[in-house]
């Protein structure tokens, strides 16, 4: 099945069996290995991407369901040579250790900040409740997202 979608702002076409998981389509034919597979059953959030702006588990979405829709992956938050400001905050504030959960965390954080420029810590924790991290104990991730929200507001809302 030919599927056309907007991926990180660019129109892309793939020809794949429709029930191939979005996760496999991204990491394989679409050439974006930033999105990670952890559990493969919706529990860990390491495969989180934005589908029309909402965070979803790419391991549970079929590529055929993405026809005409906009998908944003972690690659879409930075450019080829520079880390985006959100990712930079994770680096600066210890929000990333082994890094396995980080792409999913960044996407969940992006989804939150796009709607809530000034989230409370409770809102941050709720937004990343579907993203498991074995390393950081979460506090540093919360700190990183809070800091990113502050920087973003200072920069006048631009990411």
């Amino acid at each position: 099945m030919k599927i056309t979608l907007t991926l990180n702002g660019l129109s892309r076409e793939v020809d794949l069996p429709p029930l191939v998981r979005l996760l496999d389509a991204l990491r394989g034919p679409l050439g974006l290995p930033g999105t990670k597979e952890g559990c493969g059953e919706g529990e860990c959030g390491s495969c989180t991407v934005l589908l029309d702006g909402a965070p979803v588990n790419a391991c549970l979405v079929s590529i055929g369901q993405c026809e005409g829709r906009a998908v944003t992956t972690v690659e879409g938050l930075s450019d080829a040579t520079h880390l985006g400001p959100l990712a930079r905050c994770f680096v600066d504030h210890g929000g990333a250790q082994c890094g396995i959960c980080t792409p999913g965390m960044l996407i969940s954080a992006e989804a939150l900040l796009a709607r809530r420029p000034e989230p409370s810590d409770e809102e941050i924790r709720e937004a990343i409740a579907g993203n498991l991290c074995r390393c950081t104990g979460y506090q540093r991730i919360v700190d990183s997202i809070r800091e990113a929200s502050r920087e973003r507001r200072q920069a006048g809302g631009a990411s």
């Binding site: 989180t48 979803v56 969940s108 709720e126 579907g130």
Partner: peptide, 9 residues
Amino acid sequence: LGAIQIQAR
């Protein structure tokens, strides 16, 4: 119900 990724689907 689940986390936001589950709620979004």
